[in-house]
Design a binder for these strands. Structure first.
Lengths: 257, 257
DNA sequence: TTTAATTGTGTCCGCCGTACACGCTACGGT
DNA sequence: ACCGTAGCGTGTACGGCGGACACAATTAAA
């Protein structure tokens, strides 16, 4: 299969079908082995990593564009996805990428289009990483995979700042809406949920107070007991009580600090 | 003085100097006579009102564009201005305006530029209304003035939703940062400050608890007593203690509910 | 059987937000 | 001159929630 030439067509349409100068970028959070992770894509032209992003079709809303981009990189539909900030500085370009693209094959118009200034609307997503099929676009990026948030490399453009702000937003939201549902498969244990909260907040929580609060929220449903999990007492399994969970989301209750 | 023809030049430059499809709109909050007010501009072509807005130059950041737009409409520099959401739906057009612009004088390219789809980055500003000089652009809009938030007319485009979301953001911020500084002139009384908080929150507050909390914050400095203000005891005048105020802003302390 | 590790649950305390009462100051009416 | 009234300033009491903390239960390995 021949390598696709550089053009905007790899997105499935011609450049004229997209809004110029406008992009969406997604900070896709997952959780595994006690670590918060994000999905990154690798630019072969630069041998560095960036957030998955894309452009906005003229016939779709910006929110729809974010969902579409996320679907292309994860194969997931109906993801929890929140716009959190728009990045419009003048320092968002990467001259090396622009220089290298200028020497790529492909139509001059497409290169100029991509190399122009962009304003980017930032979204963050919470996903169950086991359901994700990381998928690079195969043109600008040749790899797409999870990175531990703590150990991921410096990113292209201003994407480090985008990640930092997404995480700050997630933290500030954590007390107001129950987040866990989107990051776990169907069932989970309270210690797992606590490790998630600790990973997001970046500080340890008291196990007893955490469990008490979670129980009092009334959005958890005990399913059974997880057995044979090691040299210790087995924790209970829980699932979210959907109606109560969504009610709590609407009312925006919860933990404060 | 002849009426300017319809073109993008009224902004001080040619259309090529601006990013197409991208706008900034500002919800400018003021406070007067116990009422929260916003600054609106009147479109003569449509005989209706909208938020003050503008476009983004290719050589300025989106934040700078918002400050510039605000300066043009208020003559104010260094305003407290916060980006809060980007509106990118497909339902943001006003067909009547587009139709009427098509029959205006002016270059066809400028009409097409303005009539195309726009994504708008929303900002809200807090200003001392006494310092504002409302200034219409004189081309698309012929009037610019304050409206009581409670009684302002339905706005053009999706600006009603933009105002609602700005107000919701302001409310949620109110507990985390001390807001008042930007909305008052140098000095004010605690009853005035309380009326501001009540106007933002949309509910009455207990006077005694409000004063106690404000005193305990340690960011107010008592100046003197306001005398002869009517048939009652005169309230004290306060000003903000700048160093402590800015420290509180950094630490993001404060009221919860 | 003992021990280590980890989970589930209850109690206590202190802070903060809320409800509430009283004294103070000015002016106007009598 | 006196008192009533309207609005301002301050203090006290209670309750709820979060944070610190102790103990019993369960499992598998020593």
């Amino acid at each position: 299969m021949p390598k696709p030439t550089l053009s905007i067509e790899f997105l499935g349409a011609a450049a004229e079908d997209y809004l110029p100068h406008l992009a969406v970028d997604c900070v896709v959070f997952g959780f595994h082995a006690g670590q918060l992770r994000i999905l990154l894509t690798h630019w072969h032209a630069r041998q560095r990593w960036s957030l998955p992003g894309g452009f906005v079709r003229r016939d779709e809303s910006v929110d729809s564009a974010a969902h579409r981009v996320l679907q292309l990189r994860t194969r997931l539909d109906h993801v929890y996805l929140q716009q959190y900030h728009t990045f419009g500085g003048l320092d968002r370009r990467d001259e090396e990428i622009e220089h290298m693209l200028d020497h790529e094959d492909g139509r001059q118009a497409a290169r100029a289009w991509i190399n122009d200034r962009f304003v980017s609307v930032g979204y963050y997503a919470l996903v169950d990483w086991t359901e994700v099929t990381p998928t690079p676009d195969g043109v600008l990026t040749d790899e797409c995979r999870w990175w531990d948030l703590a150990t991921c490399p410096p990113l292209l453009f201003d994407h480090d700042a985008m990640v930092a702000r997404a995480l700050a937003t997630l933290r500030s939201q954590l007390g107001h809406s129950p987040i866990g549902l989107n990051l776990f498969s169907e069932t989970f244990t309270l210690p797992e949920l606590q490790r998630l909260y600790e990973a997001i907040l970046g500080r340890p929580l008291d196990r007893r107070n955490f469990q008490k609060r979670m129980r009092e929220l009334g959005i958890l449903e005990r399913v059974g007991e997880l057995r044979g999990a090691g040299v210790r007492r087995a924790p209970y399994l829980y699932r979210f009580d959907r109606p109560r969970y969504e009610q709590a989301l609407r009312e925006g209750i919860l933990l404060r600090r």
